[in-house]
């Protein structure tokens, strides 16, 4: 079958894709990796010293690791990533199991639960900001407040005290909580879609067998449903972690660009973009490689754990 005519024809068909991939995918992998090891690489000096005029070394990595913003970005990213992935996976699992157990309204509810996915994450972030925002001045003395925002109104309806979530003077913790709530809300649709799909393809015979043996509901869930779903749970956890480590637009939506790049809630991706715009390309490259390494390690850890706990 392999004739020379097919050979060149294949390369012809692939040419547009391969040329673009070479420029915008393969070259960046090489170039970014090289720049990460060129000490102090930046656009200004590159004009003067030329592309190869920088000493080779680990200086960029050192600079990134010594940079206090890096550790706060890493901390923020971890705090925003780990709890939200765990909570949203658990919640999605419960919702999927419930959805799978009903017939009327199932498709309707499934469509509703999917809606947060088809949104512009930055735009809806602005809606969350409005919901948590207090209009007025929140100064310690003489606060003048016209509305506490709908979330505080709901809290007050149940007899609680209004909280300064995101306004000036709000604490780091409350800011993080708002972003986390938003991320969880945003992460549910994809997880429900995958887990419900997996549940619906589970062979009913397992459940019939459990019923005949008189197995209780909880036991059935823990012993049958979870093991059968384990590959898909692993899948949503891994994609959740990868997405979580690249968190950026949720923070931009709720606060603004400055908060996600250099402010209290700066994230890893925000840090990389700041370095790019400051022309500190070497540092940006080193930070991007570190991000890649973290994502890679987390994926491997997840896979190792899931190999032990995946049942087939």
């Amino acid at each position: 079958m392999v004739d020379s005519k097919q050979q060149w024809k294949a390369w012809l068909y692939l040419a547009p894709a391969l040329i673009l991939l070479a420029i915008f995918t393969v070259w960046p992998i090489l170039n970014t990796s090289i720049m990460a090891f060129q000490e102090g690489y930046n656009e200004m000096d590159a004009l003067r010293l030329g592309r190869w005029g920088f000493p080779i070394g680990l200086g960029n990595f050192e600079r990134v690791l010594n940079y206090s913003k890096f550790w706060s970005a890493l901390q923020n990213t971890l705090i925003l990533c780990i709890p939200t992935v765990l909570i949203s996976t658990l919640l999605a699992l419960i919702i999927s199991v419930c959805l799978n157990s009903i017939k009327p309204l199932q498709r309707f509810l499934q469509t509703i639960y999917f809606l947060p996915y088809v949104t512009n994450s930055l735009a809806i972030g602005m809606v969350f900001a409005a919901m948590f925002n207090i209009v007025g001045t929140t100064a310690a003395e003489n606060p003048v407040i016209s509305t506490y925002g709908i979330i505080n109104n709901i809290i007050m309806m149940f007899g609680g005290d209004p909280i300064n979530w995101i306004n000036a003077g709000s604490t780091y913790e409350t800011k993080l909580i708002v972003v986390m709530i938003y991320i969880i809300w945003n992460a549910l649709p994809f997880k429900i879609l995958i887990l419900l799909g997996a549940l619906q393809s589970v062979n009913k015979q397992y459940y019939d067998a459990a019923k005949i043996d008189g197995t209780g509901k909880v036991r059935t869930f823990v012993r049958i449903t979870i093991p059968l779903l384990s590959p898909m749970i692993t899948y949503v956890v891994i994609t959740g972690f990868i997405g979580g480590f690249k968190e950026y637009s949720s923070v931009v939506g709720i606060f603004d660009d400055a908060m996600a790049r250099t402010g209290q809630l700066n994230t890893m991706v925000g840090l990389i973009y700041t370095s790019i715009t400051n022309s500190n390309t070497g540092v940006a490259s080193a930070a991007a490689l570190i991000l890649f390494a973290i994502i890679f390690v987390i994926t491997m850890i997840n896979l190792a754990i899931s190999k032990k706990t995946t049942y087939y």
Binding site: F24, P28, N31, T32, M35, I272, Y273, I276, T281, A288
Partner: peptide
């Protein structure tokens, strides 16, 4: 991660 491409694509 896409950020790794972004750095060089910005230059390119």
């Amino acid at each position: 991660p896409g950020e790794l491409f972004t750095i060089t694509n910005y230059q390119t």
